[in-house]
Write a protein that binds this DNA or RNA. Structure first.
Lengths: 217, 217
DNA sequence: GTCTATACTACGATAGAC
DNA sequence: GTCTATCGTAGTATAGAC
C-alpha cells in the first residue's frame, strides 16, 4: 500500500468519523481532538488533510449532499406522470436518509448553522450549496409542473418543498424524540416503509387535483 | 425599585438574550461571556442567577415551551369537529412560532441536542420535557380521535404528529434557507397567513376521510 | 504522514472584595 | 448583586522532529 493510498484511507476515515460527530453534536460541539482520536490519529495530523475545521465541516457536508444528489437528480429527471415522479422522489429521499442515519441530522443542522458562519461568504461551502440548490430546484420544478399541467392542486411549490423537507429530513433527524414518539427505531426496515407510505398517501390525497373535499377554512 | 425587582429584571434580561443566542448558535456554540455582556453584566454575575450553563439552557427552553403550551393546550381542549379542532391547533402552533422568531429554531435544536446531554437524565430538563410531552400527547389524541370517529383517514397519528412538527416548527426554524426558498421573510404577516393556508389545505385534502382518490402506490 | 511540543485564546466555574 | 481575579481545561492552529 502506497503512501497515497494510506492518505486517502486516512482522509476517508476522518470524513466518516467527523460526519457522525458533526451530526450528533453540531459544528461547535465537536472538537478536533475527538475527531482525530476516534479516527486513530493525533490531533495535529488532521491539518495535513484539511486546512481548518471549517474546511473539514464543509467537506463532510458536501460529501453527504453529493451522495443524495447523485440519486435524486436522476430520479427527478425520469419521465412519467407528476404524481408517479413525486412518489419516486419521496422514495429516493427517504432511502437516502434512512440508509445512513447521520445524514438527516447533519443536513438539518447545516440549515441552521449556515447563517451562523454568516459574516463571510465562506468559499468552502460552495460545493455543498450547489448540490442543495440543484435538488431544491428539481423538486420545485416537479411540483410546479404538476400544478400547471393540472395533475396537482394549485399549491405553492415552494411551501410544498418545505413541507417535503419537514416530512423527510426532519423526521429522520428527530433522533430520540422521534423514536419515543413512533415507539421504535426510525431506521428499521418496517418503520422506513411505514414512513414512505404515510408521506406518499398524504400527498396522494392532499396534492392530487382530483380530490373534491368540502373545505371549511 | 428593590433589590428583588432588580434581580428579577436581570434574570428576565438574561433569559431573553440567552434564548436568542441559543436559538441562533446552539448550546455548544454560545459562551456565557457573550450572554452576560449582551445582557449588560459581567460573566460571573450569571452564576448568581443560574447554577450552571445547563440550568440556564433548560430554563430558557422550558420558558419557551411553556409559552406555547399555555396557548396550545386550551386550544386542544376546545370542542368541535376533529378537523375544526385541528385547524385551530395549526393556527395556534403557527402563531406561537411566528410571533417570536427564535422559538422554532430553539425548539428544533433542542430535539437534536437533548440526546447530546444523554449520559445523565438531567433533572433541569424535566419542566421542558413535561411541557413538550403534554403538547404531543394532546395532538396525538386529537388525531387518533379523528381517525376512530371516522372524520380522518386511517393514518398513523404518530407519523402525522411528526409531519405536523415538520410543517410548522421546521418551517419557521429554516432561517436563511427558508427565506431564500420562499423568497422573502418567513415571519411577515402575509407569509405567516400563507403558511397556515398551505398547511391547513394540505390537511383538509390529505387527511379528511371523505376524499376518494384513485391511488397508485 | 504522523508525531510532540507549543502558542494563544476561550471556556465553565469558583472565591472573595465591595 | 455585581465585580475582579483566578483555576483548570480544552479549543484551533502552527512549528518542526522523525
Amino acid at each position: 500500500m502506497t503512501d497515497e493510498a494510506q492518505s486517502a484511507g486516512s482522509r476517508e476515515k476522518i470524513l466518516e468519523v467527523a460526519e457522525a460527530l458533526f451530526a450528533r453534536r453540531g459544528f461547535a460541539g465537536v472538537g478536533l481532538r475527538e475527531v482525530a482520536e476516534t479516527a486513530g490519529l493525533g490531533k495535529s495530523s488532521l491539518f495535513h488533510h484539511f486546512r481548518s475545521k471549517v474546511q473539514l465541516y464543509f467537506d463532510v457536508l458536501g460529501r453527504a449532499l453529493g451522495r443524495i444528489e447523485a440519486r435524486l437528480l436522476p430520479t427527478l429527471a425520469g419521465g412519467g406522470e407528476p404524481m408517479a415522479r413525486l412518489d419516486r422522489a419521496v422514495d429516493t429521499m427517504i432511502d437516502s436518509l434512512a440508509e445512513q442515519p447521520a445524514t438527516a441530522r447533519l443536513l438539518l443542522r447545516s440549515i441552521f448553522e449556515d447563517d451562523d458562519f454568516a459574516p463571510d461568504p465562506i468559499p468552502e461551502a460552495e460545493p455543498a450549496e450547489r448540490a442543495l440548490e440543484a435538488m431544491i430546484a428539481g423538486l420545485e420544478a416537479l411540483l410546479r409542473d404538476g400544478v400547471t399541467c393540472g395533475a396537482f392542486r394549485p399549491v405553492s411549490a415552494r411551501h410544498m418543498v418545505q413541507t417535503l423537507i419537514g416530512a423527510t429530513v426532519y423526521h429522520f433527524a428527530s433522533g430520540d424524540f422521534g423514536e419515543q414518539l413512533v415507539g421504535g427505531s426510525l431506521f428499521s426496515a418496517d418503520e422506513v416503509r411505514r414512513r414512505k407510505d404515510e408521506v406518499k398517501s398524504l400527498l396522494h390525497h392532499g396534492l392530487a387535483a382530483t380530490a373534491p373535499v368540502p373545505t371549511g377554512g
